[in-house]
Design a binder for these strands. Sequence first.
DNA 1: GGTGTGGATTAATCTGTGTTACTCGATCGG
DNA 2: CCGATCGAGTAACACAGATTAATCCACACC
Lengths: 267, 267
Amino acid sequence: MQTGFAFSKFADRLASIIELSSDDLDLLARMPTSISHLGPRHRLHKGDQPSHCCLLLQGYVCYQDAESRDGQITSIYVPGDLPDLHTVYDGRVDHELLTLGSAVVASVPHRYFREISVLSPSMSRALLRLLLADACCLRNWIVNLGSRDAMTRVAHLFCEITTRLRAVGLAKDLRIPSPFTQSDLAAACGISAVHANRIIQELRRSNLLRWQSKTITITDWNGLVRLAGFNPDYLRLREYNNIENIEQESALATTIDRSSIVDALLP
Amino acid sequence: MQTGFAFSKFADRLASIIELSSDDLDLLARMPTSISHLGPRHRLHKGDQPSHCCLLLQGYVCYQDAESRDGQITSIYVPGDLPDLHTVYDGRVDHELLTLGSAVVASVPHRYFREISVLSPSMSRALLRLLLADACCLRNWIVNLGSRDAMTRVAHLFCEITTRLRAVGLAKDLRIPSPFTQSDLAAACGISAVHANRIIQELRRSNLLRWQSKTITITDWNGLVRLAGFNPDYLRLREYNNIENIEQESALATTIDRSSIVDALLP
DNA sequence: GGTGTGGATTAATCTGTGTTACTCGATCGG
DNA sequence: CCGATCGAGTAACACAGATTAATCCACACC
């Protein structure tokens, strides 16, 4: 067990939704962690009553419902996230928490979160905000699955992941690591793997993004946002203003390309 | 403003997920409330920064996303629920909270929840559990929308609502008040109103339920549960064991079942 | 170097569900 | 009493997306 650098990604995440004092940062720096490097589709929480939380440092993890057809993915987490914070307060777990691609996680004892909640009201509130932000994401994902078509769902997912990565200082250049298989994507969006493939082809053909060698490069952010009808308010980020203003290089060519295709899609 | 009987439905709800002490009941009895009788599709939270929570006493309310096609409904609440508890900790609201059919709600100041959290650690934990149970429902609903077909979604919704009503002492006889329009149902399940109608016809033809004069009568609970693949674990209820054992014909059995749940918590 | 495996891709076919458009009652306000 | 409105119900047609099945490729492993 060490108290190391792991806290800094978590601090980024907390700071993305709530202002942190230097006292808060001190508390975070004393977080006891034990780091693991995990392979793809590694299952965390092996059935037991959990006594530790999983703090994601690198890569992605997701909740997947093993019972449902094709294993519906209910949420995806990015570095800095604490996917199972809720287990501190409610030991029951309905879904499997597993890695998408390889990942680095820190294991943090429940006790630590209980202690900082007692020591600092502002940390207590910050943790609660994390849980609430999670619920907002779930609600938004319900809207996505219930009312949008496959293309829009996929586009929306990419927008969300990109935005969340940027909130913790990653994906600065709109390139996001993507160890996802197309089946993962399908399981998240509630579509078949075959159709997921069709959608990706279409997104590529529309020059909205590239996806090669486990990296997605968004080549037309504004086009993707418009296609998805993406509005990041539900992420509860403090600093995300004026989404339209993300500047891209070579704006001209892509803009022309996009307008011909996206305008057709969005009457 | 009165401190009245409104707390008792809320006490039922809390007791359904966590054990309450008599001190907790005392605190609940001092809840300041102001009761309103509302008509159908009444919008609560008229755009302002809310300073009160809405405690549902009778009828149903739901969150609906006005932006999405056909206004996706993200969750439905039953008496005893506190749909907007989260506004105590996070003022932002993404969706509209509105009544389905007419309803009776109590308005409770945020201040009250802050106070009981400070006065009683167990109440503080109970409120947190409410929020977490809500998130579990959302997650489950994602699975529903993402991986089940229309028929199963509808059946699952009816199972959930019935179970939640029973958890607060209602729907004892598997008859649930249903002021919903078929369009409401469609908006909740992410299907079209026309198709919702087809599904209901089918459920009727299968002798699983009747729906007449604003009441749904479930005539084959076990059949409905099986069709829906319904498993109530995600509702986080304490007393819901062995779902297969719900007896229908024998009024005696259900009475005994319920009394063990409800009588235990009333002083 | 051969073989197996998992993922991407594509095409053909089938089906669940959306859309549109209509009828029929019930309810309501003038 | 009338016309307007809203919700339930139905039918015809269109289409998004599921399913199945095949090929191809990259890569790991004996």
